[in-house]
């Protein structure tokens, strides 16, 4: 337990440090949001309508790009091999790493969302609704992404392949995330239904992600 806490603190500290790259994901998110009006035009009603969807796409891509870093640095300095040799189960170690990664990447995205939403004419409670769905949905992105990160960790240039492998798995998260946001803002639909399913997806990913990732790491090290 102590070892897990130490691992957690170490990962958080590395990510927060200069060059750790936690802030780059938020910056990337901001740039995707900025690009949207240039692509579709500064039409405020249109932006309001597609705003939640664009915020979700931006957050999805930002958390995906950050995944590359999740295990690669540990592979480079050899601490990944050490993790495999310690007494603690690799599944738990990987889960803790995923949690630390979410805390430094997914959570800032969710916190930044209400502010960035203003640029897309999604204001007030609507922005907070999007942030709430991101808060519930980004863990699923991180933990499904964990599988792809573990599969491609031994490859020199796995970043692009990682995105190709992980993106299809994130489609349900995107569907229910955007649906819940829209339900909260405009929708005739009840906010609870898609939001509950979104939470369920995150919980499922908590189970599948670390197990599959640990399996991939073990088999990759042989």
């Amino acid at each position: 337990m102590k070892a897990l806490a130490a691992l957690f603190m170490r990962d958080v500290r590395i990510a927060m440090r200069a060059g750790g790259g936690a802030s780059v994901a938020v910056l990337f998110f901001l740039i995707v949001v900025t690009l949207t009006p240039f692509a579709v035009g500064p039409d405020l009603p249109l932006l309001k309508r597609i705003g939640p969807a664009m915020l979700w796409i931006g957050a999805l891509l930002a958390s995906l790009l950050a995944l590359d870093r999740l295990l690669a640095a540990d592979r480079d300095d050899g601490s990944l091999d050490l993790l495999g040799m310690t007494a603690m189960p690799l599944e738990l170690a990987v889960a803790v790493k995923g949690l630390a990664h979410w805390l430094t990447t997914g959570l800032p995205l969710a916190i930044a969302a209400p502010l960035f939403a203003l640029f897309l004419n999604v204001d007030g409670s609507a922005g907070f609704a999007v942030a709430l769905t991101l808060l519930a949905g980004t863990p699923a992105l991180t933990f499904f992404g964990l599988i792809g990160a573990a599969l491609t960790v031994t490859l020199r240039r796995g970043g692009l392949l990682l995105s190709v492998l992980v993106l299809p798995l994130t489609i349900p998260v995107l569907i229910f995330g955007v649906a819940a946001s829209n339900a909260a803002i405009a929708g005739p639909l009840d906010f609870g239904t898609p939001f509950t399913i979104l939470c369920a997806l995150s919980l499922i990913s908590f189970v599948i992600g670390p197990f599959a990732a640990a399996m991939a790491l073990r088999h990759g090290q042989e």
């Binding site: 349900p172 229910f176 997806l201 599948i208 599959a212 991939a216 088999h219």
Partner: peptide, 27 residues
């Protein structure tokens, strides 16, 4: 090694396929 990596991806996909199917139907 490629076989084991692809196998894990395949199984992860097999677990996710029903979820994806359900989501797409719902959407």
């Amino acid at each position: 090694r490629a076989a084991r990596a692809a196998a894990i991806l395949t199984l992860a996909g097999a677990v996710n396929l029903p979820i994806i199917k359900f989501s797409v139907d719902w959407w």
